[in-house]
């Protein structure tokens, strides 16, 4: 019954697409190579990094990952389609994953899900018109003591009541977890985005060298 949990639309594959992966992302992926015996084993971490950076894994990104890992692109697609957490289509800026397993159902997750759908005016797998939220349901999130629960990006929200859904959704920081986070799977900090003058200089130098 995998169609219940996976977006089955066929992604578009443009042959003349621009390269997607930046050098920073590639560097992050390469850092995983010495952890494993084969390069293919770095595929799951690579997909995590790419998805965290670009929001989804496009066909172009898949073929570039394949090149980097020295495996056929079909192998990347093969792995990606097995796992429910990877998506080949753009999703909203925040992804809500609601638990629908038995413990949560007994504590009223169905009412919460119904309210979520009404508030966001979308169905499961849908994305709101403003592109803010996507809604998914998944099996047990291992937070059964605080059922019903839902995950917004990385943040776990516990003991949700249908009344509290509206307040939760309007909170701008509802997807942030506290400090003490590891940046292992996070998007690379691109030098261009940094306002530090010194780093900008070095990138200028690199550009000059390349030209």
């Amino acid at each position: 019954m995998a169609w219940e949990s996976i977006d089955r639309r066929t992604p578009v594959f443009a042959e003349d697409a621009e390269p997607v992966l930046s050098e920073g992302v590639k560097q992050k992926i390469r850092a995983f190579f010495d952890r494993y015996e084969t390069k293919r084993a770095a595929l799951l971490p690579a997909l995590h990094v790419v998805q965290n950076t670009y929001g989804h894994v496009s066909y172009q990104a898949m073929s570039e990952i394949a090149e980097l890992l020295e495996i056929p692109p079909s192998a990347v697609l093969d792995t990606l389609t097995f796992y429910t957490h990877f998506w080949d289509h753009p999703k909203g800026r925040k992804v809500i994953v609601a638990c629908r397993s038995l413990s949560c159902q007994l504590m009223g997750s169905e009412a919460v899900l119904k309210t979520l759908k009404e508030e966001l005016e979308i169905d499961e797998h849908g994305t709101t018109e403003d592109g803010q939220y996507s809604l998914l349901t998944e099996e047990c999130l291992a937070q059964c003591d605080d059922a019903p629960c839902l995950l917004i990006d990385e943040k776990m929200h516990k003991r949700i009541k249908p009344e509290s859904v509206k307040k939760l959704l309007s909170d701008a920081k509802n997807n942030e977890i506290g400090d003490h986070r590891s940046d292992l799977f996070d998007p690379p900090s691109e030098p261009a985005a940094d306002t530090n003058g010194e780093i900008e200089k070095t990138s200028d130098v690199q550009e000059m060298k390349e030209s």
Partner: peptide, 24 residues
Amino acid sequence: HRGAGAYVCGEETGLIESLEGKRG
């Protein structure tokens, strides 16, 4: 090593396949 949302990867050989970057 982080998985990607598959119950069957909790089975030991499924876990091993997933660790190798394949379907679990």
